[in-house]
Amino acid sequence: MKQLAVTCPNCKKKFNYYSSEFRPFCSEKCRLIDLGQWLTESYTVPVEKLTEEEIQTLEELVHEKNAEEEKKHHH
């Protein structure tokens, strides 16, 4: 079996990457703890405040994309 020593992102324990079915975590417990962090939105991506102009541009792009999708479904 291949060997690759890695550190569990949750508990920091060292383990062989290829021996864990829960990789990149060492165990199901650590995998579920991480999943719980995502589901409760404990992990967030920092977002900068958008300007009014940027918001307007994004809304227009979304509107155009939705209009294109509508055309595809009606033909």
Score class of each variant (00 low, 15 high):
residue 21 E to Q: 11
residue 51 T to D: 05
residue 39 L to V: 08
residue 24 P to L: 06
residue 28 E to S: 11
residue 43 Y to E: 06
residue 46 P to I: 09
residue 28 E to H: 05
residue 24 P to R: 07
residue 14 K to P: 00
residue 7 T to A: 10
residue 47 V to D: 04
residue 19 S to V: 04
residue 28 E to K: 14
residue 28 E to G: 13
residue 48 E to G: 07
residue 42 S to Y: 07
residue 37 Q to R: 15
residue 7 T to V: 03
residue 63 H to Q: 14
residue 26 C to L: 06
residue 22 F to Y: 15
residue 63 H to S: 14
residue 53 E to S: 12
residue 58 L to M: 11
residue 40 T to Q: 10
residue 10 N to C: 03
residue 47 V to M: 15
residue 10 N to A: 01
residue 31 R to I: 00
residue 50 L to R: 14
residue 31 R to N: 04
residue 13 K to W: 00
residue 69 E to S: 07
residue 55 I to M: 07
residue 57 T to K: 14
residue 57 T to L: 09
residue 23 R to M: 02
residue 38 W to K: 12
residue 27 S to D: 09
residue 64 E to Y: 10
residue 20 S to F: 07
residue 40 T to C: 06
residue 15 F to A: 03
residue 63 H to E: 12
residue 43 Y to T: 07
residue 13 K to R: 13
residue 45 V to R: 12
residue 11 C to S: 06
residue 2 K to G: 00
residue 53 E to P: 02
residue 33 I to Q: 06
residue 47 V to Q: 15
residue 72 K to R: 15
residue 16 N to G: 05
residue 31 R to F: 08
residue 40 T to H: 05
residue 66 N to A: 13
residue 34 D to W: 02
residue 4 L to K: 07
residue 8 C to N: 04
residue 39 L to Q: 15
residue 59 E to P: 01
residue 6 V to H: 03
residue 23 R to N: 09
residue 47 V to N: 09
residue 12 K to L: 09
residue 37 Q to H: 13
residue 69 E to D: 09
residue 72 K to N: 11
residue 17 Y to D: 04
residue 68 E to D: 10
residue 67 A to I: 00
residue 19 S to A: 15
residue 72 K to L: 15
residue 33 I to K: 07
residue 74 H to S: 10
residue 49 K to W: 01
residue 55 I to W: 02
residue 71 K to F: 07
residue 68 E to K: 14
residue 68 E to L: 13
